[in-house]
Design a protein around this nucleic acid. Structure first.
Lengths: 243, 243
DNA sequence: AAACTTATAGTACTTTTTACTTTAAGAAAA
DNA sequence: TTTTCTTAAAGTAAAAAGTACTATAAGTTT
């Protein structure tokens, strides 16, 4: 396999037609995170075909020959959820030699954050079943998808400390306690309520609305929304989301 | 191209032989960082063959069909520098449709940190020239390599705040002022000397040696080394490298 | 031996964090 | 209508951490 001749594949030396090197498959897989009543969930599909027929897996697909990676991720997300402009982020490439039983397929891992109350994902031809799973209670997964999810969680937990991604999991209008719940789920850490409020408000990136929550059996909390414009103005003055 | 039929490539539906999907090239490119007297540098090669013959580029190669991504990065680094066990990290996959003039080639970007005083990289058949460049003063680069370097720098700057990667750029034994220099170069920020010392020492991850620097025209500073064992013990108690 | 340079220790002040207590506001039950 | 309950929201005091310095020590060079 050329291991004894380390230069064999160097672009500058080989004399083979370039097409001889185009022997890899390429796919994109998306770890879709949602938040519901205190816990973090991922959206899984049950595969309708071999390999790993009937196994649970994260949604993904082969990349089109004329499609950029981000477009591919976007296509998969829209196709599965019906939602456009979902927040997503590439986080790692997985390319073990034996990760795919049928050939050498590299997959680019993306994670995505959705407001899970917005829609109900539906099964389709290529996914006989679609379901939310709590991240603490995942089934056995196809391919190396468990590894992919674990890496996605680690990446998300780092990201959440430096960028305001937590808001992507909440509806437009939210209470401070809901926001606290999201951060507690993301970081699996409890916060003191008055201090959380103080800290978040001091960042000046959420604005209070003239509305309160309804249908609650106690004093209703004020609703807020995330002020992206204000965030963009402030982010150079070293805003961080360390809580 | 199947754009009107979004399911065309879904693994579960197509009836084509799987080999028909294996039409991508795969490479690994390494952004090698070094530190020298106050500034951060990257190691570039001058290409000896088309495409982009004579252009400066970051070192990289096609991945072997039977080689994992990390092994590929390691091979490239060892081949170029002669050093083993260099620190490296995968940071992003680049897969624009037109990023490679000869075909659809996805590249996995790695960055690496080396103690640059340890060796002198040498030119070879596939690289007619090898040279360190200050990151503030880079030449025009082949392919999308400028974009790759920029992304690598952003990633490294984030990494350095949560993990003790700064030590990878220094020799085994170093003074506190040298360490401060590395962090100042990495974060492009100046620190107060007494406070930097206080902060680093309070982390308990460097140990003082019974040695001082030599050949300096003033009071010699004490030498320290990084205590990886101690770091591993402490890192669960939320150590961060915010300076 | 004096002058100079840099290491290292120390200190006083400010800001932030942490762990609480108190008060307010609405809903539901009596 | 009044009482009780629950949670929102504001306030406070002590501790910790960060900041901006000053002072002293330990070597080299002249």
């Amino acid at each position: 396999m050329g291991q004894n001749n380390p230069d064999r594949y160097f672009l500058s030396e080989n004399n083979l037609p370039f097409a001889d090197f185009l022997h890899f498959g390429l796919s994109v897989d998306c770890v879709i995170f949602g938040y519901h009543s205190g816990s973090l969930r991922v959206l899984l599909i049950q595969r309708g075909a071999e390999p790993f027929k009937d196994s649970w897996a994260i949604p993904g697909d082969l990349v089109y020959p004329d499609e950029d990676l981000n477009n591919s991720a976007n296509r998969i997300l829209t196709h599965l959820t019906g939602l456009k402009n979902i927040y997503f982020e590439q986080f790692h490439a997985f390319g073990s030699v034996d990760r795919h039983p049928v050939g050498r397929v590299i997959t680019i891992g993306y994670y995505s954050l959705v407001r899970s109350e917005n829609y109900q994902p539906v099964a389709s031809m290529w996914a006989k079943n679609v379901k939310w799973f709590d991240i603490e209670d995942l089934p056995k997964l196809a391919f190396d998808h468990s590894e992919i999810i674990n890496k996605a969680i680690l990446n998300l937990r780092k990201k959440v400390r430096t960028e305001p991604v937590g808001f992507e999991l909440l509806p437009e209008k939210f209470t401070l306690l809901e926001l606290q719940g999201v951060y507690e789920a993301l970081l699996s850490e409890r916060f003191d309520k008055p201090n959380f409020r103080k800290k978040i408000l001091s960042m000046n990136v959420i604005t209070p609305l003239n509305e309160v929550e309804t249908n609650v059996a106690h004093r209703p909390a004020k609703l807020f929304n995330f002020d992206k414009k204000r965030y963009d103005e402030l982010k150079n003055n070293e805003i961080t989301f360390e809580l």
